[in-house]
């Protein structure tokens, strides 16, 4: 009895990690962009591009790390598009982000047809050429840690490392301080000699890179191919997680884990043939998120200059 409780618990934790990982990357991307003062609602589109690029490179190159980095680069190029619009041309950032989402799915499917003989589903990558699973077979079969970690891909750990890195960058380095000051008060930052434009470019491109990683964490680890519906709403959930986490990397991590955890719970509860409808169980993660927000998190405030294009001549 005790044993089953443990193994069920381990299963939920395992599902939580799996589910959260793509969201963690992507919401970290959101954290970077928005702390520099640029709203990035195009995370979904950037994730799609990353997922497609990862799956395609993974299939043709056969090296998961090259594919993973390539997905980041593809996301970054896509982020550059957003950066050019938002930083150089003072675009309405919400509008540009929505455009990125429409373009993302269009471009990904279009390219997929060119690379895969007219198919919008890429070919499957064999297990050996997917991301490695560092702790596969390390713990004894059936043990608590084995159930959790046996099949977790490197992407999971890399995501956690990225949370640390970005937290360190934002709060412990002078560049992070600069980035945040640009997001809070660009005019003041500018008078102090900080290059607002350059920092925002960096932040938005990096947010594309992270979202690209997020997509690849989906197509190179959770599954092994790209299909048009692979990313359906994940970017928006990541966006919500970032806001939930109060625009902070550690907060975003917790929000993603909460969401993944409630999905794990939904999967766990779904195995029993309850009298209640499975629809209501599937609803659970979204209800839990709202309830937690209402009960425990409360007000969150975006960086002060979030969403406002910065122009040198502009007088505040």
């Amino acid at each position: 009895m005790m044993e089953t409780i443990f193994s069920n618990f381990a299963l939920i934790i395992g599902t939580t990690l799996m589910y959260s990982t793509p969201l963690i990357y992507t919401s970290l991307g959101g954290v970077l962009a928005e702390n520099s003062g640029v709203i990035n609602i195009g995370l979904e589109g950037m994730m799609i591009i990353g997922a497609f690029a990862g799956a395609t490179l993974g299939y043709f190159v056969g090296n998961p790390w090259i594919a993973f980095i390539g997905a980041g680069v593809a996301g970054g190029i896509y982020g550059l598009l957003h950066a050019v619009a938002c930083v150089s041309f003072g675009a309405n950032q919400v509008v540009s982000g929505i455009a990125i989402n429409f373009l993302g799915i269009g471009v990904a499917l279009f390219l997929s047809r060119m690379f895969f003989e007219g198919a919008t589903m890429t070919k499957s990558i064999p297990l050996d050429f997917k991301m490695p699973r560092p702790l596969n077979g390390v713990f004894p079969d059936g043990s608590f840690l084995n159930i959790i970690l046996d099949n977790q891909y490197a992407t999971v750990y890399v995501a956690l490392i990225f949370v640390l890195l970005i937290w360190f960058f934002l709060y412990k380095t002078k560049y992070g301080l600069r980035l945040r000051s640009v997001g809070e008060h660009p005019t003041a930052a500018d008078t102090l000699g900080i290059n607002v434009i350059r920092i925002r470019y960096f932040a938005v491109i990096m947010s594309g890179v992270m979202a690209g990683f997020g997509g690849a964490a989906m197509s190179l680890a959770i599954v092994s191919n790209f299909r048009p519906t692979l990313i359906s709403g994940h970017g928006f959930i990541a966006l919500a997680a970032m806001i939930f986490g109060k625009w902070k990397p550690q907060g975003a991590l917790l929000a993603c884990l909460l969401f993944g955890g409630s999905q794990g719970l939904a999967v766990f509860l779904g195995q029993f043939n309850f009298e209640i409808s499975s629809q209501l169980i599937s609803m659970l993660p979204y209800v839990i998120t709202i309830v937690v927000l209402i009960g425990f998190v409360g007000k969150s405030a975006a960086p002060a200059a979030d969403g406002i294009p910065y122009e040198k001549e502009h007088k505040y």
Partner: peptide, 21 residues
């Protein structure tokens, strides 16, 4: 078990993992 979705690959994986476990 039903996933209440035809798209959510992660959920399919989680359900299958659970069954295998």
């Amino acid at each position: 078990q039903y996933a209440d979705s035809f798209t959510d690959a992660a959920k399919g994986k989680a359900i299958a993992n659970q069954m295998y476990e």
